[in-house]
Design a protein around this nucleic acid. Structure first.
Length: 422
RNA sequence: GCAGAGGUCGCUUAGCCUGGUAUAGCGCCGGCCUUGAAAGCCGGUGGGAAUUUCCCUCGGGGGUUCAAAUCCCUCCCUCUGCGCCA
């Protein structure tokens, strides 16, 4: 969420931002109004408390001298009554203000392209060549040909959008994970295996509130949610803490299984393993000083580009527009892999600069010479296994159904260069 | 899961029994001193609202009281022991 000082000192920026996002401004107006009320209530309460403390001290003094202070008790009762009403009103007002504040989206970077939907995202660069393949079977067909997936039985034991990944494809997934981890560790990222569940309070710090209904699975009878990405625990980790950022920022490579409800999602993307309820992902997370976040956003994208270039998959980088960027990010770049079967670019990496939007909600600060300030948080995919697998299967398939294993992955595949068709 | 001991300002720590402005050290920042630095000395070092004053803050929430770090209830977490377990 946004810092209160933005609403107080620069509300124009909030409203202009809502206009760019084509969103109504009533919630933000409510925040400002409730904040005003809250401040008046605080003032009133402080005055009452001041009186209470003064009288209480007087009674203490009198008692010390062996006297009785009971004639002050009547006045005290009046103050306490006023204070009780004031305190409950103050609490309610603050709670309402905070609830509204959480719903106000992040301020967009001025360079975010204006647009309605994903069709208006701006292409920034192209990488690799689209291979001239004689076949363009969709990835789910290729998986069947190499005997690497069992969707039917997964549907029996769990439901749709789950899968058994088997044999060489399972091995390929592990290779992708190891490859991404190697790249990031070489580049100074600290590998971190987080908890795969988080409680609501921690979760509220890092996601849009709607995600509780549409994205995360709730654990029955516990205040716990399955994580949708390791970014969430990695960023929440320093909630309510003052961290030290000396020269270098905090760089993490998170690895986890991710769980997503995918409520409302449907269409062609449902086939195979493109959109599933469970997948593994290596994630990049950076926590840095505000003045450095632009630079490190570029670093995250550069890492992802390096990883996908290594896999020799054709892809492009796009700058996500105002209509497609979501609540939390101030700027977002995606990598989209070329999918021959549908002749489309499809998202395989998403890199967001959240600025202080998450750290404010988490109350995570870092030490500055003047005191403390909110750091910026950034996250980006390194490898989301199911999507990278699908891209490899489509781009590297051969006429006979076999699949060429990208060179960089072969050392984890017993030096095989091919996944043979059954 | 059971029992005991704990959780105090960035870190360490006193205060809790016996209620009355949260103690000291370390670290950090500033000043004096110095050619420079260290040491030494002095001051500062959580948050909020107002503007030079006030309020809040002792793991979270609630209660008792004129007054709660201190007493009571409850929840969370840590440590130790026991139990269970890949």
């Amino acid at each position: 969420m946004l810092e209160m000082k933005v609403f107080r000192e620069d509300s124009k920026a909030v409203f202009e931002n809502l206009k760019r996002r084509k969103m109504p401004d009533d919630i933000a107006k409510g925040v400002i109004q409730m904040d005003q009320e809250w401040r008046e209530l605080i003032d009133e309460g402080n005055k009452l408390r001041s009186q209470r403390n003064r009288i209480s001290r007087e009674i203490g003094e009198l008692k010390k001298k062996g006297k009785d202070g009971s004639d002050l008790l009547g006045e005290m009762a009046k103050i306490k009554k006023g204070l009780m009403g004031n305190e409950s009103k103050t609490k309610e007002t603050l709670a309402s203000r905070e609830e509204a504040r959480m719903r106000v989206p992040n301020l967009l970077d001025s360079e975010v392209p204006q647009g309605q939907s994903e069709h208006d995202n701006r292409e920034l660069s192209l990488h690799g060549k689209k291979k001239k393949t004689k076949t363009s079977r969709p990835h789910q067909e290729v998986m069947e040909l190499v005997g690497g997936v069992d969707l039917k039985r997964a549907a029996n034991v769990t439901g749709r959008r789950f899968y058994f990944l088997t044999g060489d494809l399972a091995r390929l997934e592990m290779a992708l994970i190891n490859y991404a981890i190697d790249v990031l560790c070489e580049r100074g990222y600290s590998l971190t295996i987080p908890p795969f569940m988080m409680n609501k309070e921690a979760y509220e710090g890092v996601v849009d509130l709607n995600d509780f209904e549409e994205v995360m699975y709730k654990i029955e009878d516990h205040d716990l949610y399955l994580i949708a990405t390791s970014e969430h625990p990695l960023t929440s980790r320093f909630k309510n803490e003052i961290i030290e950022i000396k020269g270098e920022p905090l760089r993490y490579a998170g690895i986890s299984t991710n769980f997503r409800r995918e409520v409302g999602a449907h269409g062609m993307s449902d086939r195979g393993i493109w959109r599933v309820h469970q997948f593994a992902k290596v994630e990049q997370v950076i926590i840095c000083k505000p003045e450095d976040s632009k630079k490190f956003h570029d670093e995250l994208v550069a890492n992802a580009i390096h990883i996908f270039k290594g896999l020799e998959i054709p892809f492009r980088v796009v700058d996500i527009c105002t209509g497609d960027i979501g609540t939390v990010a101030a700027r977002k770049f995606d990598l989209e892999a070329w999918m021959p079967s549908s002749q489309q670019w499809k998202e395989v990496v998403s890199a967001s600069n959240c600025r202080s939007y998450q750290s404010v909600r988490l109350n995570m600060r870092y030490r500055t010479p003047e005191g403390t300030d909110f750091p910026h948080t950034l996250n980006a995919t390194a490898i989301a296994t199911t999507r990278a697998l699908a891209a490899i299967l489509e781009n590297n398939q051969q006429a006979d159904g076999s699949v060429v294993i990208p060179k960089v992955l072969r050392k984890w595949m017993g030096d095989q260069n091919l996944i043979k068709a059954k």
